[in-house]
Amino acid sequence: MNVFKHLFSTYRTVYLWFWAVMALFVLAIVLSFVVFGPYIENVMDASVWQGAAGAAPRWFVFVIGIMLATVNLTVVIASGITRRAYFAAVFAFTLATAALFEVASLAGFGVERAGFATQGLTGFLPVDYPLNSWNAAASYTGEAFLALWGFMLSGWAIGLLFYRLRVWYAILLIPVGLGPIIGGGSLPPLIGQGARIVTLTVGLALATALGFLLVRSAPVRPKKA
């Protein structure tokens, strides 16, 4: 628990900054509608947030995942924490981050939709807009959550690869850690949601297992001078 708290307090500030920027972004969208009126006529996929929330947070948590491996691992273990406890804390922390980010991203949809509503433009929102129905919300949130969590664990596993192994082995093994990104980022247009969720889950499990194996006996090496 204390390691989880430590990780949370380490990243709290960057998380806040990240979402502050995202909030500015969504507010700008809403404002543009209030000021300029319905300039998006004849566009079917009018949600800007759907694109933004689907990409930026994922790559952001991917980078945080890398840092969990390359920055936090040595400090945490050198502070008298076992590798197991570090692993458990990373697992819980990535899960909590994914959940938090998902809530924030849903809030963004709420603001965007409210903005559209002021101009009576809700009809321009895509059919699968997460706030159109409870069903859409559930299916979007479930997949987006898995993708966020997966991206983060993927970054972590790849960070560990480079921490633990020689660079060529690490590069060779990257595909094992990339599962969630393949499932969550590249495939969506090509396969159905069911298949995406399966790929995401398998990728997530693979990245977690890879990370666990790499952490289990990781040495705390001195920093390169």
Partner: peptide, 23 residues
């Protein structure tokens, strides 16, 4: 250790916070 296992990019205050939270 000589290399110091602390967060290089952070402030001294964060190093102490890590000690408080982890030690």
């Amino acid at each position: 250790r000589e290399s110091g296992d602390v967060y290089d990019n952070e402030r001294v205050a964060s190093v102490l916070r890590a000690g408080r939270q982890l030690r």
